[in-house]
Design a protein around this nucleic acid. Structure first.
Length: 572
DNA sequence: GCCGTTTTCGGCCCGACTGTTTTCAGTCG
């Protein structure tokens, strides 16, 4: 059976091969068709049986015929031939910075280099520099690039990148640049970022470049031009700074925030409406008159759109929604009244309950939930039942003393059979329970789904902790039927956690959106193990925003009485 | 290869920077 995603991946592969052939138009055509098939809610075979393949956006005669061949024979003759023409290792070579399709194909044709390792040998043997159009610098860049790729330099966690970016922004501000912003995927709060993009609005861009490249933590200046520079910091992070005139600051902010997909749609829209859109502004076509540029929101308004928050700019329907004035009213950092996932010294945290509460008060929260680990998680000093009950009493007294609501919960392990790690009579004495999977992670999909559904059937479980179990860059999500889990949570009033631990970010943006679609609410939790980590709340908030969530979708925006009511209702 | 509110042919998003050139191709975002 050929699923939509199988068909899409064949088309994506064809797109890559067209890239190697140097035909960017066919590449884009295949890519567009692949993307729209991947986004389809209906099976492609349904379209096919009705003879309606060509009504899929981006699918014309040629691609329709290819899809038919794929579905009927399970393969594609023309693809086999193309694969023989270009070895698979060429794609791998293109992961190296500065090596694009042209370079990769030239190196393959001229030197017979067909994978990353071969590329390294060719560079080390100085066989690249003598090729026409290449030189010593090019060869050195390639060699450095290979080291970068092989040294998993890859992507960086949001929570690591943002403080670095904020420090550079402070440096630029202190040097007199008043219009400075984080841009790129970081401004969209994507959970990982490839590099850090910054933007300055200044009528003296040269000064901005000098200020930037003289930042004390710069290890190397990779490129420096009059309006754009790239540096590598001592910790290996790459940072780009672009400077534009003040009158273009808003347009540039729009442009450099991306995503690329969002911008392609925006520029196409501009053309349709008789404009041209670039990083300098929105211009009337023909006269060239500039109609917007200084203010980002103006660009959206002039194109007939509600201003779109950066977190939504992924070409996932936001432009459509903005056109109909139906953008969600996203949850905001200042809406958050409390945190539901905090560890203390009682298990593996570093702060006492008193210190945690003091920090919650300092942050202006109205309540705080304490959730230490349960007994079977020995590695984290999980609490025995007696100690847990003693701490419930401690919380009650502390709450009374400080006049501040403390919700006493626990992060309870979901055991291999789906049962919870404390007995019912213990669980009943808690205000709420987060159930989390920490062991037997490699179960089959059916088993894991059953395990979690069993856990959800326990009324004492209020929140499913870090539902997918992924660790970014380290561990894939569990094999699990997440749709069924979310549906069951929605049906029974269980909540899904958005865990803000930097390598979790789990649920992620897509998961949040799915949860909302299926009618489930979420709670945000920092999973803090010391005071400073309570600050991770902002990552959870913005992940929820990327998932289109509004105030009423997020339990942390509700007053404590309402929260208690939601927890009680689940237990009843 | 797809597509049509300037088009059934001729477009397809756009500009900066580097390294190699001597006017530009390739890459990147």
């Amino acid at each position: 059976m050929m699923r939509n995603s199988d068909i899409a991946s064949v088309l994506f592969e064809l797109a890559e091969i067209m890239d190697l052939k140097g035909d960017v138009f066919k590449r884009n055509a295949y890519r567009k068709a692949a993307q729209s098939i991947e986004d389809l809610d209906v099976e492609v075979s349904d379209y096919m049986s009705k003879g309606k393949l060509e009504s899929i956006p981006g699918v014309g005669k040629a691609i329709a015929r290819k899809i038919e061949e794929l579905v009927q024979t399970g393969g594609l003759r023309s693809l086999e031939e193309l694969r023989a023409e270009f070895p698979a290792g060429i794609m791998e070579m293109m992961k190296v910075p500065d090596v694009g399709p042209r370079t990769a194909v030239t190196l393959y044709r001229e030197l017979g280099v067909s994978d990353l390792e071969g590329l390294r040998k060719a560079a080390e043997g100085h066989r690249i520099r003598s090729l026409k159009g290449f030189g010593v610098k090019r060869e050195e860049n390639i060699l450095r690039g290979i080291e970068l790729v092989q040294g998993h330099a890859g992507r960086m966690l949001l929570g690591h990148a943002l403080p670095i970016a904020e420090a550079v922004v402070r440096h630029l501000r202190s040097g007199g640049m008043d219009e400075v912003s984080v841009a790129g995927s970081l401004r969209r709060w994507k959970d990982t970022v490839g590099d850090i993009d910054l933007l300055v609005g200044s009528d003296n861009p040269g000064a901005a470049m000098d200020l930037f490249t003289s930042y004390e933590l710069v290890a190397a200046v990779i490129s420096k031009g009059p309006t754009r520079s790239t540096v590598r910091l001592v910790d290996g992070t790459q940072v780009d700074l672009r400077a534009v005139p003040r009158s273009s600051y808003g347009a540039a902010l729009q442009y450099f925030t991306g995503s690329k997909e969002h911008n392609v749609v925006m520029r196409r829209r501009a053309i349709q409406q008789g404009y041209r859109l670039n990083e300098y502004g929105l211009f009337r076509r023909g006269s060239g008159e500039m109609v917007a540029g200084g203010d980002e929101d103006d660009i959206y308004r002039l194109l007939g759109l509600e201003p779109i928050p950066p977190e939504l700019r992924e070409d996932r329907g936001e432009i459509d929604a903005a056109e109909r004035q139906r953008l969600p009213e996203l949850v905001r950092e200042e809406d958050i009244l409390g945190d539901f996932h905090v560890h203390t010294v009682l298990s593996d945290g570093k702060a006492t309950m008193r210190e945690v509460v003091a920090e919650a008060v300092r942050r202006g929260y109205r309540y705080i939930g304490i959730t230490d680990h349960s007994s079977s998680l020995h590695i984290a000093h999980g609490l025995q039942a007696d100690d847990l009950l003693a701490s419930v009493e401690e919380a009650r007294q502390l709450s009374e003393e400080l006049g501040f609501p403390i919700l006493r919960g626990a992060e309870v392990d979901i055991m291999e059979d789906g049962s919870l790690d404390y007995s019912q009579d213990i669980l009943e004495q808690l205000d709420y329970v987060i159930g989390s999977v920490h062991s037997h992670l490699k179960m089959g999909r059916e088993e894991m789904t059953e395990r979690i559904l069993t856990a959800l059937s326990c009324k004492e479980l209020n929140i499913l902790g870090h539902p997918s179990g992924r660790l970014i860059g380290r561990r894939e999500p569990y094999q699990v039927d997440m749709d069924r889990i979310l549906e069951e949570a929605a049906r029974t009033g269980a909540l899904l956690e958005v865990n803000a631990s930097l390598e979790r970010m789990d649920l992620n943006d897509i998961g949040c959106r799915k949860a909302k679609e299926l009618g489930a609410k979420v709670v945000l939790g920092t999973d803090s193990h010391w005071i400073e980590e309570l600050d991770y709340m902002r990552f959870a908030v913005h992940t929820a925003r990327r998932g289109w969530l509004e105030r009423e979708d997020v339990v942390n925006t509700m007053p404590v009485e309402k929260v208690r009511e939601i927890f009680r209702k689940r237990s009843a």
